[in-house]
Design a protein around this nucleic acid. Sequence first.
DNA 1: AATGAATGAGCCTTCATTCAT
DNA 2: GATGAATGAAGGCTCATTCAT
Lengths: 230, 230, 230, 230
Amino acid sequence: MADGVKVRRLPRVVRERQMMDAAVTCFARHGYQSASMDEIAELAGVSKPLVYLYLGSKEELFTACIRREAGALLAAVAAGVEDRSRPADEQLWAGLLAFFTYVADHPDAWVVLSRRAWTQGEPFAGEASRMREEIAAFVAGLIGDVHGGVAGPGVEVRGGGAGPDPDVHGGGVGRGVDALALALVGAAESLADWAAETPGTTARDTAATLMNFAWAGLGNLVKSERWSPP
Amino acid sequence: MADGVKVRRLPRVVRERQMMDAAVTCFARHGYQSASMDEIAELAGVSKPLVYLYLGSKEELFTACIRREAGALLAAVAAGVEDRSRPADEQLWAGLLAFFTYVADHPDAWVVLSRRAWTQGEPFAGEASRMREEIAAFVAGLIGDVHGGVAGPGVEVRGGGAGPDPDVHGGGVGRGVDALALALVGAAESLADWAAETPGTTARDTAATLMNFAWAGLGNLVKSERWSPP
Amino acid sequence: MADGVKVRRLPRVVRERQMMDAAVTCFARHGYQSASMDEIAELAGVSKPLVYLYLGSKEELFTACIRREAGALLAAVAAGVEDRSRPADEQLWAGLLAFFTYVADHPDAWVVLSRRAWTQGEPFAGEASRMREEIAAFVAGLIGDVHGGVAGPGVEVRGGGAGPDPDVHGGGVGRGVDALALALVGAAESLADWAAETPGTTARDTAATLMNFAWAGLGNLVKSERWSPP
Amino acid sequence: MADGVKVRRLPRVVRERQMMDAAVTCFARHGYQSASMDEIAELAGVSKPLVYLYLGSKEELFTACIRREAGALLAAVAAGVEDRSRPADEQLWAGLLAFFTYVADHPDAWVVLSRRAWTQGEPFAGEASRMREEIAAFVAGLIGDVHGGVAGPGVEVRGGGAGPDPDVHGGGVGRGVDALALALVGAAESLADWAAETPGTTARDTAATLMNFAWAGLGNLVKSERWSPP
DNA sequence: AATGAATGAGCCTTCATTCAT
DNA sequence: GATGAATGAAGGCTCATTCAT
């Protein structure tokens, strides 16, 4: 009858965060399939039915996790880039730095987002790819500026992407640009995984490595025409 | 008396190949965890016990698949490269072309080898990574040639601040080169996945895209200093 | 609204008892290996997962059964003996009577405890033997009392040739006493099985038979009226 | 075409012995249920179908093993007793000695015969019990001599069992005698197991221990020095 | 006389999910 | 708002047993 002795009735939002935090940890630890709802509920400190009540099925839970973490990652990158009118290389550098920094600071989130936690055929593969595509699209924008600029003679390389950018998607240059962007994203993922496993790496170094690779190009490493961080 | 209608009692080697083919297909379709031995056996046209008798457990079966497919892929790339005394860019180009060609021709094999079929923590992750590392090592060799051979002393692949050289790990160039190689491999994987999903791409185009990206460098796309296939 | 028609949602302890009862029955009926978890669950009136949730694996379940039944049997015997300061023959008689009574009343329990339900090499063999040893130790204590207390020094329980005393193991009397105790326990088991299969036997009669066999024999060991091999 | 290079076609009897030897070993090692036909066939050096061809099912194979080994054991005991007209105690001693000797020399056979290799409910339980009963009947014969003798006053204790022995089975004394015989057999089994597990025991010592236990007891039944329940 | 090839059937175990309170 | 109790469904693995040669 005495109430208030043990207040366990937390507001829904708090509980949901607890659960998703637990879920991210578990999914990162075991992967989607091997993570069990039991463990997630236990780690969150609640009973299993509550998880189902709030977050739906395991699949929905995972999708929610991906959405939350992808949003945070994208926000971090966007915040890092800051100003979309700066020169493309500065934007790229800022984006890479923000990316590797975020990933280093949130390893579980990155595991869940990267392909280490799930496999093809799982229904949220699309959900997860969406983030990838968003990032790729952003990168494609940058590259498109550069690349498109090159197409016409005399065009300023560093022309900011102020105006509309009609040629990024679709045929023509677009497809090539998309492919390049994907290559860059793939390289970034690969390096992020490597950095996560390799002790003693800093986000700045990793970002610089990729920036070098991407910007200067392997062929030019030969000529010491390296890009260097500002 | 009618012969050839339905062949039963095949020799062990043949059955084993059938089973592994079926396994590769299933693993590619659903991923390791979700693929069921029942489905594999059915697809192979045999009963489940036979699969266990010949190939052992599910894990052993998957490992065997990875080994077989990794061997085939590596062999294809090695055959493409042909002559390790040619100029590095030719070698790289040949390797990329062979890689994307093989991957385009054997999409299931590629899914099984790439991270789309399994997740971190699964016991064969090591087995599967071995191939990745072998390819990366090969690429690192090329890059190292370029770097060490052409650029002369004093050139550094990895970026970093202006301050004291943080490259305290590994043997001088090593780590930076490894990271670059991994970046390249990651880009290749990413493009391979993209090519697999995108109709109308040829292996040659994809390879050229990556070669451009990797060799010329994004920065130089600006100056139209693009590498072009021989 | 109708209550008592069919009781669902029982508290855990009740369900656990139901399951273990069912398990004892099944194990007694078919032996450990041949008993199936399906049958146990069905007999207990629950689904299989619940059995696993509450009692763990088949092996753990069996171990739990053995422990429970062994505890009950030992408790029954101990309660029968009552007073460990009474004369040894009274103690033995009381123990035998309690044993055969309990065994007659709980035939399934006895099957599970005796070697009829499991075979050598099964992991709980040790668990099950422990009870046997406890009983044997108790009996050995009685015999030891008789022997040490009444017979005085120089009397030996174990036979043997006329030559040098081969009793080099154990602490003097120990081994011979242990062997005798085991013989007695073996005889008791054998009679218990026989009584279980033979209708019309009472626990009192069976106990008396064994007591006659054992005591008249043991009693005379005291007087050195030993039979000696020719 | 060349024949005779490798003669593997052994006569049926030889093959059968090989198989049964292997079977006894396997059954002793793992118990009936856990022993696999694969292992038996392999140990026998033949293919599985041959085992089925010669010995029938696993159950028949085990039954055959039991029959063979039981026959050998009984023959050994019978041979040890030699002369059924000797005094009962000599017969019993000779039988026990032969029993423990045989068991010590053929541990696998004993495991298969004793309850360590199979469990109740298995169809050959009866088959295996038959040997037990045969031995028990033999023992009962001896005891019956002694016991029956005591009933009438002045009867010679060691009266040989030459004449017909009508009162061993059935009501009256019979049942008690059977029970005593079973107790003795149970004690013998128990000691045999103990001896098998305990290094440094000789068959003679073990037999003497039991003989002491049994005879000093039985011997006193003669003098009506029976212990009686309060 | 002997075997390589093959399978039907079953068992232990797990897990996402829901019901009733 | 929160949970203890309970399960349907499926998956990995094994084994005795047989067919065709």
